[in-house]
């Protein structure tokens, strides 16, 4: 009888010893979505001239961008890198979701940050074989490394004629042999409550690329913009308001 009681007590003791550290570990899921001022954009929306902004009517034919160092920051400032890098292609369903490489505890977090593109240290030329084979590389003469974004489409010019546009973002070439990184960091300092069913949604409002803080007029832009450091800076600045985050 004594043994049974002792065993029961031991069991209770072990169970009650569960600390905060034993709370459930989760691998947050990610979902990447696109919208035009709130209207969802899917691959089926491509090619049709159906979007409008201050500069006219346009279509989307390509949208790929790269995020790196997607990091969750806990209330005690402990940072957990969830995703090293991820290439999102609006037409590739498999790229529109992924799962964290690390686990975190369920609970509240105070911030989510990520880098749009690779930071300077990680923008290592030819280092990422999965990106090399999809031609995500940025040319040597423009600073090497990798693209940050490839966004393309067509727009109607003043004569109502279709013209192509290509908004490719990457390292800025200031002059021959002089380059400046063009990645940018987005930080969402808001309470994030994560549980095992949580899905972190990273949303891109494509319309924002054209208007905030710089008005971007496709009619007056000179393409390609890749070798144009001013245009590259405009794109980077406009990128700051493009993203939002949600927990589903």
């Amino acid at each position: 009888m004594k043994k049974i009681v002792a065993l029961l007590l031991l069991s209770v003791l072990i169970t009650s010893c569960k600390t905060d550290d034993d709370s459930e570990k989760i691998s947050p899921k990610f979902k990447f979505t696109f919208n035009w001022d709130g209207e969802a954009i899917n691959a089926s929306d491509f090619n049709a001239i159906k979007y409008s902004n201050e500069t006219g009517e346009l279509s989307i034919t390509k949208m790929r961008y790269l995020l790196s160092n997607i990091t969750l920051i806990a209330n005690d400032d402990v940072e957990t890198k969830l995703i090293t890098y991820h290439l999102i292609d609006l037409t590739e369903e498999a790229s529109l979701s992924t799962i964290s490489e690390s686990t975190v505890e369920e609970g509240n977090y105070k911030s989510l940050t990520f880098t749009v593109g690779f930071n300077e240290a990680e923008n290592t030329p030819n280092a990422y074989t999965d990106l090399n084979i999809t031609n995500w590389n940025w040319p040597i003469g423009l600073g090497d490394g990798y693209h940050i974004m490839q966004y393309e489409g067509k727009f109607l010019d003043a004569s109502n004629q279709e013209q192509t546009y290509s908004l490719h973002v990457g390292t800025r070439k200031i002059s021959d042999g002089v380059f400046e990184p063009n990645h940018f960091i987005i930080s969402f300092d808001t309470n994030l409550v994560l549980n095992s069913n949580s899905e972190i949604e990273i949303k891109m409002n494509i319309a924002e690329w054209f208007k905030n803080p710089n008005l971007l007029d496709l009619n007056t832009m000179v393409f390609p913009i890749m070798p144009n450091p001013v245009a590259q800076l405009i794109m980077r600045d406009n990128g700051a308001s493009v993203f939002s985050v949600g927990i589903n």
Partner: peptide
């Protein structure tokens, strides 16, 4: 690799994709 030929977007930048 620049706008004069503009070949690299489809065929790679040369030093990166040997295909």
């Amino acid at each position: 690799n620049d706008e004069r030929g503009d070949c690299f977007h489809c065929h790679g930048t040369g030093n990166s994709n040997p295909l």
